[in-house]
Amino acid sequence: MNIFRFLGDISHLSAIIILLLKIWKSRSCAGISGKSQLLFAIVFTTRYLDLFTNFISFYNTSMKVVYVASSYATVWMIYSKFKATYDGNHDTFRVEFLIVPTAILSFLVNHDFTPLEILWTFSIYLESVAILPQLFMVSKTGEAETITSHYLFALGIYRTLYLFNWIWRYQFEEFFDLIAIVAGLVQTVLYCDFFYLYITKVLKGKKLSLPA
């Protein structure tokens, strides 16, 4: 464990909690892409199948449980509890264009051709593009609530910090995982546009609005 990875995990956990609280407190999921949250639930499910078979540490197991439980809770709130506030007309990204290519790629490029390893690889590839429906929805509505932009910023920063974690681990642990690094780079690049808007607007107290 190193500071970048720890801060990354904290940032990721913060994003998940921010979203849960935003929906629960405001009793509304307006502006939130249910499709992205569905994809995140798939990402955690396919990545943590070894939750009960491969114990690494208490921290690792407890964080995995929190991630899986909160992602399912978020999906449940969007598609069931507060589905009346779900803005389906603006959440129109074709997720099959994300799931199919990443599934095919996980069969072609992986560390080991075994079910668990292919599912782990699929989850890494899917995570790198899972935010696209949400970013697409923000660009379609032309704006995002400030709390939603804080959620997106925390979520984007988590994988950016993981990039520094991989530099650290390559330097000091001779560890590198090209699949995770390349997917992490793609994931971070997808946030660049949003990071620019967040830093130039939201941090100056303005509302996040995209040129429609």
Binding site: R5, F176, A180
Partner: peptide, 10 residues
């Protein structure tokens, strides 16, 4: 290079 199955990151 990481060995398959020993993914210790979240």
């Amino acid at each position: 290079e990481v060995l398959p199955g020993d993914h210790d990151e979240l």
